[in-house]
C-alpha cells in the first residue's frame, strides 16, 4: 500500500512542470485614487480610441471621485449615464484589424493571471532583428504596440512605460470590480462581528453543556 502512495505522490510532484508559454510579471495593482486617475488618463490617451468600456459610465467616474469638470470635458455632449464607448466603429475596426477590439471593462478578470497578465501583455512587445513587432505574452495579437514599448530603448523611458502600464492596469482592475474597496471595508466589520458572535455562542454552548457533565 505504501508503495502505491509513494508512487502517486511522485507522479503528482513531477506533474508540476507544465510547458509555460511566457512567464508573467506578477504585480499588485494600486487602489488609491491618484493612481487610478492617472491610469484613466493614460487609458483615454492610449486605448480608448479603439476599445470600449461599456460597463463604465461617466457617472461611475464621478462616483469614483474624479473631478466633475474633468468628467464633463471627457464626455462632451454625451449624457452622464453614457458608457465609455470607443471612438472606432466596429466596421472600421473589422477593416483595419479583422476583428472588433474587445471591451475592457472586465479585462483584468477575463484572463488567467488577471492584472499581471494585462500588465505583462502591455509590456510584452519587442522588435525582431528584421523589424517586425511581436508580443511575447500573446503572439497572435492584432493590437499594435499601444505604448511604444518595442521602440523604447532608453532605460528611463522604459521605467516610465512600466509605470504607465501599471496605472492603466490599476484603472482596469477598478473598472472590473468597482465595489471591491467597499467590499473589503464591509468585510472587516462582518468578520469582526462574526468573531465576537461566535465567541459568545461558544460561551453559551459551554454554559449549557456544563450543567450536563455533573451527572
Amino acid at each position: 500500500m505504501k508503495k502505491i502512495i509513494v508512487l502517486l505522490i511522485l507522479c503528482c510532484s513531477s506533474l508540476q512542470v507544465w510547458p509555460e508559454e511566457a512567464t508573467l510579471q506578477n504585480i499588485k495593482v494600486d487602489t488609491d485614487l491618484p493612481a487610478i486617475e492617472r491610469g484613466m488618463d493614460d487609458l483615454m490617451n492610449n486605448c480608448h480610441t479603439c476599445h470600449t468600456l461599456k460597463y463604465i459610465s461617466y457617472l461611475d467616474l464621478l462616483k469614483l471621485g474624479i473631478d466633475k469638470k474633468k468628467v464633463d470635458l471627457m464626455r462632451g455632449d454625451q449624457p452622464l449615464a453614457a458608457p465609455l464607448a470607443g471612438l472606432l466603429s466596429d466596421e472600421a475596426a473589422m477593416q483595419m484589424f479583422g476583428l472588433v477590439p474587445p471591451d475592457l471593462s472586465l479585462m483584468t478578470k477575463a484572463r488567467e493571471g488577471g492584472p499581471s497578465y494585462v500588465y505583462s501583455y502591455l509590456l510584452g512587445y519587442y522588435n525582431t532583428p528584421d523589424g517586425v513587432t511581436h508580443n511575447r505574452i500573446f503572439p497572435a495579437t492584432k493590437m499594435p504596440d499601444p505604448l511604444g514599448v518595442s521602440t523604447a530603448t532608453d532605460p528611463a523611458k522604459r521605467e516610465e512605460l512600466k509605470k504607465t502600464a501599471h496605472d492603466i492596469v490599476s484603472f482596469l482592475a477598478w473598472a472590473s470590480d468597482p465595489h471591491s474597496a467597499e467590499r473589503h471595508r464591509l468585510g472587516y466589520y462582518v468578520i469582526g462581528y462574526l468573531l465576537i458572535l461566535t465567541a459568545l455562542l461558544y460561551a453559551v454552548k459551554n454554559r449549557i453543556w456544563s450543567g450536563l457533565k455533573k451527572h
Binding site: L197, L201, Y202, K205
Partner: peptide
C-alpha cells in the same frame, strides 16, 4: 447551541 456555534465558525 452546538449547531449555532458551528454555524458561527462556518460563517467566518
Amino acid at each position: 447551541s452546538k449547531d449555532l456555534f458551528g454555524l458561527g465558525l462556518f460563517l467566518i
